[in-house]
Amino acid sequence: MSQTMIKHEIPRKEFLSPGHLACPGCGGSIAMRTVLKGLGEDTMVVLPACCWSIIAGPWPQSSLKVPLYHTAFETGGAVASGIKAALEVRGNHETTVMAWAGDGGTFDIGLQALSGAAERNEDIIYCCYDNEAYMNTGVQRSSSTPAGAWTTTTPSDHPESHPKKDILSIIAAHRVPYAATASVAYPQDLLQKVRRAKSIRGTKFIHILSPCPPGWKHPDESTVDLARQAVQSRLFPLVEVENGQTWRFTMDHEGYPIAPYIKAQGRFRQLSNQQIEDIQQQINERWTVWENRVKYGT
């Protein structure tokens, strides 16, 4: 079989306007652009406080071509629940309601509302574009920040000491019908997951790794490359899980060394080779866990 060209797989229609206010090389913008292509125009977006509160444009602008509701930081899951209920009570069972939150709004302050929505199995899609810290406020650590990373609240002589929270497992434990990880480096994979999510009733969760040049301190042009390296190195495997039980890899993970990924980012500059080796070790151990999940569903 010849290599299918990506252009035949990504819809042409755009639901994001140029002139939005993302930083150059913003992974979160690629993520939104791709996701909306998968969802189409019959979509409403709930946007708790995050970088996208700015990217979407100040009043009276909107960079989205679908309805958008900006809301308070911790309310993504709840506001989306309310919108969906309102649509359904008036007989609209088709429109997709998507909450679009950063890692802060998902892993930290919004986790309760997300858990509530997931437990109630609200018919919404919850996307977390994960840039691994509070970037909009100027790079403070979140519970998504990986161990070893510099942020303005984990200075380089005392970098983040806790491992990144395993949000996917937390959501999967709610036995939602569909949860997945995705990366902006793999638009076809992301699109497929979005379409899958759209076709399923109940709570769908997509966790999208979205590198951030100013926050990760990498060159603007490396965004996609780093999002890819994270997958290739098995640091951020691309998986999907149905009903919290059936786990599946959606990509081959080459298992490339993690060192180039770490060294390409200024936020890890303080790490010694030994510390990088330790991270490699943790990835290797964690990979066994992933493999077992896929194999045995645990």
Binding site: T75, A78, V79, G82, I83, A85, A86, Q112, A113, G116
Partner: peptide, 17 residues
């Protein structure tokens, strides 16, 4: 919902719709 905070948030969402 799982809290009053979400109760009001859900009302806001529904009202916005």
């Amino acid at each position: 919902v799982e809290s009053e905070h979400s109760a009001m948030a859900a009302c806001i969402g529904a009202s916005a719709a």
